[in-house]
């Protein structure tokens, strides 16, 4: 996972939960088939419109609900670059870092509009809005997780820890 992400914004509201991101009834399908249904309850055109590198910007409590990592899997399948939200649900935040999906918390995401071009620096917690010519402060990646993220997520980190190349 890179520490600098640049992409175009799609905006969402509060409480985008895991049943919205990854509905239960499709979870047993292969990821490419599940991904077609990602977010469809609130945004039926999601899977057609998102482009690799796009950034999702949302309000409170993104990813609440289930511990299903299929939520990260479908977003990664669409090659979402990062998620910026006012706050994340705990398990979702943890899972995202573990699988290398960048997540950044920011105090007031309503200042970002759909279509804006953002550049996020994960180490510094800096978010530049190139469309609006403004800069915001986001949360930095937690200290103890930097090495893991540098290596590309939990699996490569474990490989190193266990001495497996």
């Amino acid at each position: 996972m890179s520490f600098i992400i640049r992409g175009r914004v799609w905006t969402y509201g509060d409480n985008i939960n895991t049943d919205i991101i990854s509905p239960g009834q499709y979870m047993s399908l292969p990821v490419e088939k599940q991904a077609v249904h990602a977010m469809e309850a609130i945004d039926p055109s999601f899977s057609e419109k998102v482009q690799p590198g796009d950034i999702l910007v949302a309000g409170h409590n993104f990813g609440s609900g289930s511990s299903r990592e299929t939520a990260q899997m479908v977003l990664k399948h669409h090659r979402i670059g990062a998620i910026v939200a006012y706050s994340f649900a705990r398990i979702f935040y943890r899972n995202s870092i573990n699988v290398g999906l960048p997540v950044v918390e920011m105090a007031d995401t309503s200042v970002i509009s759909e279509g804006d071009e953002l550049e996020i620096n994960l180490l510094e917690g800096k978010i530049i809005n190139h469309t609006k010519g403004t800069e915001y402060k986001g949360t930095k990646l937690p200290e103890h997780l930097i090495e893991m993220v540098k290596l590309g997520g939990l699996e490569p980190y474990l490989a190193k820890k266990l001495g497996i190349s």
Binding site: S67, R68, E69, Q72, I91, R94, N95, N98, V99, G153, L154, E155, L158, K161, L162
Partner: peptide
């Protein structure tokens, strides 16, 4: 007792 994701479980299963 708390929930974790599947990737995190890989680490728990191994270590």
């Amino acid at each position: 007792a708390t929930g974790i994701g599947s990737t995190e479980m890989i680490g728990v299963l191994l270590t």
